[in-house]
Amino acid sequence: MLAVELKKLSYTYSVKTPFEKRALDNVDLAIEKGEFVGLIGATGSGKSTLIQHLNGLVKVQEGEAMVAGMNASDKKTLKKLRFTVGMVFQYPEYQLFEETVARDVAFGPKNMKLEKEEVDRRVRRAMEVVGLPYEEFAERSPFELSGGEKRRAAIAGVIAMEPEILVLDEPVAGLDPVGRREILALVRKLHEEVSPTVIMVSHYMDDIAEMADRIVALKDGRVVADGSPAEVFGAREKLAAAGLSLPTAARIADKLAARGIVLPRTIVTPVALADALAELKAKRAEKESEDREGEEEKDV
């Protein structure tokens, strides 16, 4: 089943002014339910505009956006669409506003007009999932939490709506390495336990290479690459033309290739690189010992 289907989607900002800018240009994109898609592209490539179409934050101008079976231009289902697509914006903790964490997390499900018991159940579950145990955090002020905790509280507010599709825009921006690892592990967990379809926007190619099943790259509002991390990062020329950088492992593999150590272009993670190099080393050692044995036989 398709979670997202964009057909010839185009969008222009500031139409008929000197600042007119085509942010999306004929985008065709289908995302299956259950996929983890990494959305990449330089600043200004149209990523934000694209994700804002998914829950009707911007109106469809040209083309069509079908999301979870709903047409994003249909006003009647707009509210339902907003609950079905959970949006975690950049620095979501700036949107915390309630006096307690529990009330902040409850804001979304309350808006869904759910029964009080159901709201409570969802708040508890969301807080547990993000690692802020209800008993300990429910009555605390969100503003007294640490940076990483604040971000998790903000994410809890989104997943309390139990969205089918979760969209995250730069979820680790500004976090220290510990906070970063925690949030990435959480995103993985949310993909498995809460929202089957995840779309993650990130500038960090290393994270995208580790996390996504599929990568969609945008440039000037167009899809310029779409495939597995190995396919997308493997197509070096295309990637460079889109102004995108490589994950660290692929970049190092290229530097090694320039020095005569040629590895597959499909290597995108540090583990894959380390394994490939170890294999190469083992093969060489094997060959050397065979050669040596050959020499010895000749001597006999």
Partner: peptide, 20 residues
């Protein structure tokens, strides 16, 4: 201290575990 090593340092460590 909650810091991550630079990716190159991390990779060197992984390779050391694999005989480099």
């Amino acid at each position: 201290c909650g810091l991550a090593l630079p990716p190159a340092t991390e990779l060197a460590r992984m390779l050391s575990e694999r005989g480099f």
